[in-house]
Design a binder for these strands. Structure first.
Length: 428
RNA sequence: GGAGGGGUGGCAGAGUGGUCGAAUGUACCUGACUCGAAAUCAGGCGUACUGCAAGGUACCGUGGGUUCGAAUCCCACCCCCUCCGCCA
């Protein structure tokens, strides 16, 4: 949610920011609604004030035992007009809320211009893509060769975009998650969270998945007529920890890390990445979330992105850091860095982490605020980033660490999590 | 699933139809005392919208209803706690 004051007082700033996203929005209807709202609200409040004073009079007259009939008659005439005004005001407020709820965040001034991913700007590259004296296999071939990735089983049990992992590959997947959690908790100062995988609509609204992107979510109906959603990322349950809270600014920053499966319906991505486990309905992710004082969020974005980079560096996986252009950023973000890992079989870099500063956008939707000593509450800032997507990291390890015979070296830092195992081989 | 209790300000906790946006305690802020601190004393201290301001309005789990007037009465729902049953 944008600052409503900004919408009112500087609509041209809002329009300019949205234009950078390629999301032109006509603010005319908003301004018309606002003008109406102001008028109806003032009218309503005047009527309410009148009713309140008259009602108080009745109370006082009764206490003194005097006649209340004349005042009763006067107040009786207010009822219908008041009710009509209150109803009208409620409708207007609901319309204004609905309008504001679907406006995306404004891009930060440092965000590159551009319409789509082709305009994203490479910030840095780390590591050298490995060279092979054989034709490198992709993770599908490698995984099936190791009897570790079973795509047919995933399809049989659940359907397309589901995968089953087995044996040492499943263990490697688990090792990656453990490793990432341990690094973030012991070296980067994050508190580990275990969170619900199903959340209510309020939580989805808070982080910006609702109301606009319901079709991307898996929805679970309940017998009582309500429904929950499967989380598309741990960002949702973890960030909503502070929904409706007023935190002491001195207690910030809060830094949380959480490992969960993520569920995405991937509507609208038919035919995209259908091979392998790049784009799944269910995948594991380690998510870092920071809740910070407003003046700290830009610094925090850099360090948080660095925390994700640390994982790639410890795994010795080559990557590049991209600054997403205005047109390619998600709904709630003010700025996003994507980390893209090198995949030899695709001969390209693929997204493995996304780190964003949302400034106060989510906080306003969530009513999450902080208060300085003796000061007024103000919206805090939220950030999050993948550190990392576990499934894609597994893909990257398989492809980058492969050997000519189809076996795969286990990265040094993971061997302790693998019982000392150094090589994944095709033995059953 | 069954029975009972309860949701009020940062926290605790009064308040069962009328100067209640809400006692009191605590936390917090300011001042006095003090070399300083503690203790003590005095004052202040919810959120949001609206207005230049004075002020006005809304909010006591949520949504409806009754009433001139609702934290207080009625209905529905949500959540929490205790006990019983079932259960990883």
């Amino acid at each position: 949610m944008l600052d409503i004051q900004l919408l009112r007082t500087q609509p041209e700033v809002v329009a300019a920011g949205l234009a950078r996203r390629g999301a032109a929005i006509d603010l005319g209807p908003f301004e018309a609604l606002e003008a109406q709202r102001k008028q109806v609200q003032t009218q309503t409040q005047d009527l309410q004030a009148k009713r309140n004073t008259l009602s108080k009079q009745i109370g006082m007259l009764k206490a003194k035992g005097e006649d209340v009939a004349p005042v009763m008659a006067e107040v009786a005439g207010l009822g219908d007009a008041l009710k009509a005004n209150e109803d009208k005001l409620a409708v207007l407020l609901a319309e204004l809320d609905a309008f504001a709820a679907q406006i995306p965040n404004l891009p930060h001034e440092s965000v590159p211009e551009g319409r789509d991913e082709t305009a994203n700007v490479e910030v840095l590259r780390w590591g050298m893509p490995p060279t092979f004296d054989f034709v490198p296999k992709d993770h599908v071939e490698l995984g099936e060769g190791l009897h570790g990735l079973d795509f047919a089983a995933g399809v049989k049990i659940a359907g397309s975009r589901f995968t089953l992992m087995r044996g040492e590959v499943a263990r490697l997947h688990r090792a990656l998650a453990q490793f990432m959690l341990d690094v973030h908790t012991t070296e980067h100062g994050y508190t580990e969270i275990y969170a619900p995988y199903l959340v209510n609509p309020d939580s989805m609204f808070g982080t910006g998945q609702l109301p606009k992107f319901e079709e991307d979510l898996f929805r679970v109906e309940r017998s009582d007529g309500t429904h929950l959603y499967l989380i598309p990322t741990a960002e949702v349950p973890v960030t909503n920890l502070v929904r409706g809270e007023i935190l002491d600014t001195a207690s910030l920053p809060l830094k949380f890390v959480c490992h969960t499966p993520c569920f995405r319906s991937e509507a609208g991505s038919y035919g995209k990445d259908t091979r392998g486990m790049i784009r799944q309905h269910q995948f594991d992710k380690i998510e870092m979330v920071q809740i910070v004082a407003p003046e700290m969020s830009w610094e925090a974005l850099e360090t948080l992105t660095g925390h994700a980079e640390t994982i790639l560096q410890k795994l010795a996986l080559p990557y590049r850091k991209m600054s997403l252009c205005a047109g390619d950023m998600g709904f709630s973000a003010a700025k996003t860095y994507d980390l893209e890992v090198w995949l030899p079989a695709q001969n390209t870099y693929r997204e493995i982490s996304s780190c964003s500063n949302f400034e106060a956008f989510q906080a306003r939707r969530m009513q999450a605020r902080c208060r300085d000593k003796g000061g007024k509450p103000r919206p805090l800032h939220t950030l999050n980033g993948s550190g990392l997507a576990v499934g894609r990291t597994l893909v990257a390890v398989l492809e980058n660490y492969q050997r000519a015979d189809g076996s795969v070296d286990v990265p040094e830092v993971l061997r302790g999590y693998m019982g000392g195992l150094a090589i994944l081989s095709a033995e059953p």
